[in-house]
Design a protein around this nucleic acid. Sequence first.
DNA 1: ACAAAAGTGTTCGTCATACACCCATGT
DNA 2: ACATGGGTGTATGACGAACACTTTTGT
Lengths: 228, 228
Amino acid sequence: MTITQNIKVAVDAVVFGYNSTDGLSILLIKRKSDTFHGTWALPGGLVHEGESLEQAVTRELNEETGVSINYLEQLYTFGKPERDPRNRVVSVAYYGLVKPDIFKLKAATDASDVAWFEVKRLPTLAFDHNEIISEAIKRLKGKITYEPIGFELLDEKFPFSELEKLYMTVLDRPLDRRNFKKKIMKFGFLEETKEKQNLSGAGRPGNLFQFNQEKYFQLKKEGINFEI
Amino acid sequence: MTITQNIKVAVDAVVFGYNSTDGLSILLIKRKSDTFHGTWALPGGLVHEGESLEQAVTRELNEETGVSINYLEQLYTFGKPERDPRNRVVSVAYYGLVKPDIFKLKAATDASDVAWFEVKRLPTLAFDHNEIISEAIKRLKGKITYEPIGFELLDEKFPFSELEKLYMTVLDRPLDRRNFKKKIMKFGFLEETKEKQNLSGAGRPGNLFQFNQEKYFQLKKEGINFEI
DNA sequence: ACAAAAGTGTTCGTCATACACCCATGT
DNA sequence: ACATGGGTGTATGACGAACACTTTTGT
C-alpha cells in the first residue's frame, strides 16, 4: 500500500526587534492572497524543492520584508490538520533577532504591507500565528536567561542601561541595576570601551560596552554557564 | 506563479527507556523496505492526511513497535534536502519516555526487527537518525534538569536510589547522594511511602517513593522552579 | 562476620538579594 | 539650580558542595 500524501511544508518567521522606547516588537506582513486577505500575518511561505528550511526562511524574509536576519533558530513545528483552511500545511516556525539599524525600517518602507508591532499590542493574526508568536515569546524569555543572545538585539556598542532595559522588557520583571551589572560583568565576555554614549536628552552619558563573541565561545568551551 | 511542491512530511520518534542495569536505551526497528534495507532506524513514517503530528507518531509507534508512550514531546524538525536519498522528506522528530514495564519488552517480542539499544552502544543508523538521536539526548539532558520528567522513566513507586542513578546516567556525572536527596525532597512533590523495596540481592532495602503530579502542577502554578 | 546498599547532618564558601548615595550632563 | 540618568559597595541570608559513619538486610 502506497500512501499518496499531499501535505505542504511551509516556514514562518517570528522576527523580534527591540529599542528602548518601543520595547520588543515583531515584524508582520499584510496578506494579499484570498485567504485572510488584508489580515496581518507572520512572514513565511512554502519551502522550495531544493532548499533547506533555513534557506526558505531567509528567502521568504527577503522577498516579503527585505529584512536580513541576524540570529535565527528553529522554534517549533505546527501541524494540526485544520490550521490552514485551504489544504493541509505543516509549518516549521523559526524565530529571529535583528539589530536596531534594521529594526529602524519601522517607518521607512511604505508601511502599508510590512510593519513592526509592539509585542504588547499585537493585532489578531491569520491562521494560528498568534499561537506561534506566544510560543516564540516564551522561548525567547527562556533562551535569553541561559544564552547571551540579548546582544543580537542591540547595536555593536551600547550603553549598559540598554542591555538592562532589554532584559527587563523581555523577562517582564524588574532587575536590580547593580546586581545585574555585577552578574553580567563577572562572565567576562562583555567589554567596556572608552567611548561614551552620544547624549540623547538629559542625564549623564554612559560608557559603551561591546559583546566579545570569540571570548564567549572560548569561555563556553571551558564550561562557563551563563544564567541570569 | 503557483508552486507545485512535492515534499513529504514524516515523523520519527526517539523513545527512551531506562533501568539501572542497562542504563538509558533507545527503541529501534530494522528496516524492511529497499532503502537502507536491514539497517536499524528510528520508528516513524509518513504523516497521514487527516491526523495531527502527535497522532502520527503514536500511530507509527503502535504499528511498528507495539509500544505505547508515556511522555511525548516535539524535538526538532529535520529538513535538509538530501537527508532522504529517494525524495524530499521533512521529518518532525519527537522524543518520548516509557515506563520500565514497557521497556521490558527487551527480550519479549522476537527481537529480530524491534529492539532496545543502550545509548552507549548504538549502531550506525539509516538516514540522519544518529544525528536525531544525539539531539534527543542533548535535549533530554537539558530538560531533566529543569523539569521533573525523570519520573516518566521509572515505575510508579521506586526506591530513591533508582532516581539518583537515573539522573547520574542521563547527566553522565556523579551526584552526591545526600545533596541530591535534600534538593529533590525540598521541592515537596516526591512522597515517601511506607512500603519497602522487595529485596533484590544484597543490601538494605530502601523505602519506596512516588511522584505526586498534582502537587507538582500546583507548585508549578505557584511559581516553583525545579532545577538540579 | 562480612558484603552491599540505605539512611542521615554539619561545615564552609559562594552567590543572590536588598539597599542609597554621589556624579556627570542638559536645560 | 534642578532634573535626568549613570556609576558604584556592603551586609545578610540562602543555597550548593564537600564530606563519613551507622543501619539493615542477605549470604
